[in-house]
């Protein structure tokens, strides 16, 4: 509760938003606010200006192209994604998103806000990395698109720089996906998670074991190969109150196997 003083801007367009963000190094985009406002309550962050992206229809909406490619506006809420007929083209998206936090948070929290927070305990970073999502970032000099490996740079750090905005996320067609997690209680704070996607070859992304998702490409999708890939990654996860590094490393392997199995079974 009780934020530091902050200014508030409500731009009428993405262009306006970029303008405000460019004018002030201390400006920060406010998406759903389900992370940022809490960080501000703790006074762990105190931007000078909040640039409210709510209401910018340009950043909303989910489109499904003929080739199965999904384009998700950054300001799409979790609830909107869960309800979207288009998003069902990649079923894992709705399934995982439905386990994030709770109804209220899903009603207001956004897909873009989630990935921009780059919280290592969140589900979307590894999922996006596994399914090959690409991120469109707009700035004064136009748009650029990056993959997950370039997008997630560190804890609470992404490729979205000062004066820039994430506008949309593009997800290729696919359905052989899997996801597994161990959380505190049912769908609580995540201890470890793993996403897998099979598209000819298997790609696994591990969460909670490093600042950014750890992406692995096992030689094959069978259990032994998956285990070998995880062991070969020489994980060095953090220890905290919920898990020792050893336990996290162990969970990463078990969850990778489970996610891979689910991906294969689809």
């Amino acid at each position: 509760m009780l934020l530091r003083e902050v200014e508030y801007a409500k731009p009428a367009s993405v262009a306006d938003a970029l303008g405000v963000l460019a004018q002030n190094d201390g400006a920060r985009a406010l998406a759903g606010g389900q992370t940022l406002i809490n960080v501000m309550k703790a006074r762990a962050a105190s931007p000078d200006v909040l640039v409210d992206l709510n209401g910018l229809d340009e950043l909303k909406g989910i489109e499904l192209a003929g080739d199965g490619t999904l384009t998700i506006g950054a300001m799409t809420t979790y609830t909107e994604l869960m309800a979207s007929a288009e998003a069902k083209a990649r079923p894992i998206l709705g399934e995982v998103v439905s386990t994030i936090a709770d109804v209220q948070v899903r009603n207001r929290g956004t897909i873009g806000g989630n990935v921009c927070a780059s919280d290592p305990t969140n589900h979307l970073p590894p999922l996006m990395a596994a399914i090959g999502a690409r991120f469109t970032i707009a700035g004064a000099n136009g748009e650029r698109e990056v993959g997950a490996d370039e997008f997630f740079l560190g804890v609470y750090m992404t490729a979205v720089g000062v004066g820039e905005l994430l506008t949309k996320i593009t997800i290729p067609a696919g359905k052989h996906d899997g996801f597994a997690a161990v959380t505190l209680g049912v769908d609580g704070t995540c201890i470890a998670n793993a996403a897998a996607s099979l598209d000819g070859s298997l790609r696994i992304a591990l969460g909670c074991v490093d600042a950014v998702p750890v992406v692995l490409e096992p030689a094959s999708a069978d259990e032994a190969a998956v285990r070998e890939a995880v062991r070969g990654a020489a994980l060095d996860p953090p220890s905290d109150v919920h898990a020792t590094a050893e336990y996290r490393t162990h969970l990463a392997e078990v969850l990778a196997v489970r996610a891979a199995r689910q991906a294969q079974e689809r």
Binding site: D102, G185, G188, T189
Partner: peptide, 11 residues
């Protein structure tokens, strides 16, 4: 309540 997990409805 992130790290001190009290039971919620699904638990």
């Amino acid at each position: 309540f992130y790290d001190y997990h009290v039971p919620h409805a699904l638990d």
